[in-house]
Design a protein around this nucleic acid. Structure first.
Lengths: 378, 378
DNA sequence: ATCGATATTGAATCTAGGA
DNA sequence: CTCCTAGATTCAATATCGA
């Protein structure tokens, strides 16, 4: 797995990065996340994913129209006396996150409208720089049983870097691949965690009231970490972050106060198997790939000289020449230059503009580049 | 257009509601919104819709890359020295909104991740009670050209009441109808404002950098106001709020500092035609229908005393008595009470629980209520 | 086994009015 | 204040059950 895209040029950090060997990798730290994080060295963590209490402030009981009772989140850990108390708690754990994150580290926090506005403002106050807010659109949310509001069908994730000028990691290419060759948007449609994925306790009841779906963590980790990175989750719960991190070949650390959650998480992560190298490699960022001359692809016989290439709408056709240039009428030159000139565009990515036909299928010539890259590996 | 559902029980407000005649209805107040709102009486406005500046640049202190983007929002009104200045500005205009809103009034604010977390936290601090956060999912957002982040494909709207215990208006039934008989969710998919709807200035360039689509305001006003309500927009811009309000038969007031925007908005709203009464009629919640005593239905002979009623699965049968009570074995009482007791349920809507047979068909006794309502109309 | 019907459940700030 | 009662209100995905 290659390096991810490092976005934003900045001077190399002068902060001393703590080596991984000083970290309790693959461990669930038993205790309050603030005191546990305080034991960790500065600038040692690549990514924090945090799912803090939402401070729901629920009223009385709620029944469905069929009379059944809604099992609400009434756990002690979600009770705060006031917004001020919640803010103080939030400021405290976010401050520790800021300290232990590397200068190019990333922070994700998930929440609902009950807490996310406070969390977001405090993140900004502490100097975190918001990169995106992501909306998790639930495909199967709980309805509003009383018909009093809009169905609360989403939760919000905030993604931030250490500061306005800080570098951060974003695996643009992997996200685009995951999204069927369209840029990944800030709204993600994913189902809630249910069925076999939902962990049960010994009593057959759900082990944790707010277990997050693995698909959500999968996308977060794939987008903003690389293999071997260290991911910390201060509110580990049943360990979704740890399970997905292990699967994706990332190191992880969790903090969790409740012994029952730690027990479930430990068993769960033990069962998890890391994906093998080849599965992870396909998610590499195009920008960090070695540059490939079109000529090398031609040379390798993947798009032999004489092959006809064309744009997606077949407005233009061009011929591949032996030296890796294209010829289209009077225009000739690199794949990028010819594409740009024909369109009258300021620039053109020839790899995605030009296409070829193989076995009745039309593919961008970038597909041939990928094949070339595979063939030269090892 | 009938009355909307009033949600949440609260004592009748002791606040004196200012009459509409004291308000500058259908006017764009020329000036800063805080000073203009200060001239308005307390408790006089039904709904505020606000689209405040987004704080895209954080002023000269935080030296930004040299702002050479052609179409970026770089107007003077969108510059603030710091988060603190933005917060102070936000607190100021929201405080005036709180004062001029009626006790059962509603507040909507739209923003992006640059400002909405600060706005949301301040709203909560001022005592506004968040009812929903709504995600406007843009069907055609601007791509992220540099491939450095997720495509920023949504904006966020916050909907709040005056306080935790305050009443508010929500036209649940109209929203459900608009959404093909499914509850309206908190994520709305709507296109951005473009094409003919996008207003152009004399130079042929877009008149305003962040003109909102009318479909967005249409849904907001239909959901949370009724005909004749007064809607105020403190950042009127090119008057989308006024145009849609006029079309939907709501009164409106705008505040706008820039003469150029006022000019465009005035011309735009002048062209707008109100929909006629029948088009404005929306589906009504059952809650807004007149209450009918079951006894009245019995009295009217629609379900005469002695009629046998039963639940859908015919697990229980009961007899209608002359006073409008039911008898089932030892249990007797109102249609609701008997249904509730027999099922051991926390509550029961007798109108839909009990059924009767007529001409070989089985109908809920609610059908008899509807017949009764028809018979007493006019 | 299979198919259709029925039951369960999910981060929920979830009523209104009168005595 | 509290208490009481009328009565309005749900979507999608699993899991279980019964023929």
């Amino acid at each position: 797995m290659g390096e991810l895209t490092l976005v934003r040029a900045a001077r190399p950090a002068r902060v001393k990065i703590a080596p991984k060997t000083e970290l309790p990798l693959g461990q669930i730290l038993a205790g309050d996340c603030v005191s546990e994080m305080r034991k960790l060295p500065d600038a040692s963590i690549d990514l924090v994913f945090a799912d803090p209490p939402y401070n729901l402030q629920l009223g009385g009981d709620l029944n469905r129209p069929d009379g059944s009772h809604v099992d609400a989140v009434t756990d002690d850990w979600d009770r705060f006396d006031s917004f001020a108390a919640y803010d103080a708690f939030t400021r405290e754990w976010l401050t520790e996150c800021k300290r232990i994150l590397k200068p190019d580290g990333g922070l994700w926090v998930i929440g609902s409208y009950h807490n996310i506005y406070r969390v977001g403002a405090i993140m900004q106050d502490l100097g975190f720089w918001l990169l995106n807010d992501i909306v998790w659109r639930k495909s199967n949310p709980m309805p509003n049983f009383r018909g009093t509001r809009f169905t609360n069908a989403h939760e919000t994730l905030l993604w931030a870097s250490q500061g306005e000028k800080a570098r951060y990691h974003f695996n643009y290419r992997a996200m685009k691949t995951l999204n069927d060759e369209l840029q990944m948007r800030s709204d993600w449609v994913l189902p809630i965690c249910s069925g076999g994925e939902r962990l049960k306790g010994d009593d057959g009841h759900k082990a944790h009231p707010t277990q997050k779906p693995e698909s959500l963590l999968y996308r977060v980790l794939l987008a903003t970490t690389e293999k071997g990175d260290v991911v910390l989750d201060p509110f580990f719960g049943t360990g979704t972050t740890g399970a997905v991190a292990k699967r994706l070949g990332r190191d992880w650390i969790g903090c969790e106060r409740e012994a029952a959650y730690r027990k479930v998480a430990t068993a769960r992560i033990a069962k998890e198997l890391p994906l093998d190298e080849s599965a992870l490699t396909t998610m590499q960022s195009a920008r960090s790939q070695p540059r490939v001359a079109f000529g090398a692809v031609v040379e390798a016989g993947l798009l032999p000289a004489g092959t006809e290439v064309f744009d997606k709408k077949r407005r233009w056709r061009a011929q591949v020449r032996a030296d890796g240039s294209l010829l289209c009428g009077k225009e000739s030159g690199s794949i990028h230059h010819v594409g740009k000139t024909l369109q009258g565009a300021p620039s053109c990515n020839g790899w995605t503009f030009w296409h070829y036909e193989r076995d009745g299928e039309i593919k961008p010539i970038d597909a041939a580049r990928q094949l070339y890259l595979l063939s030269v590996e090892d």
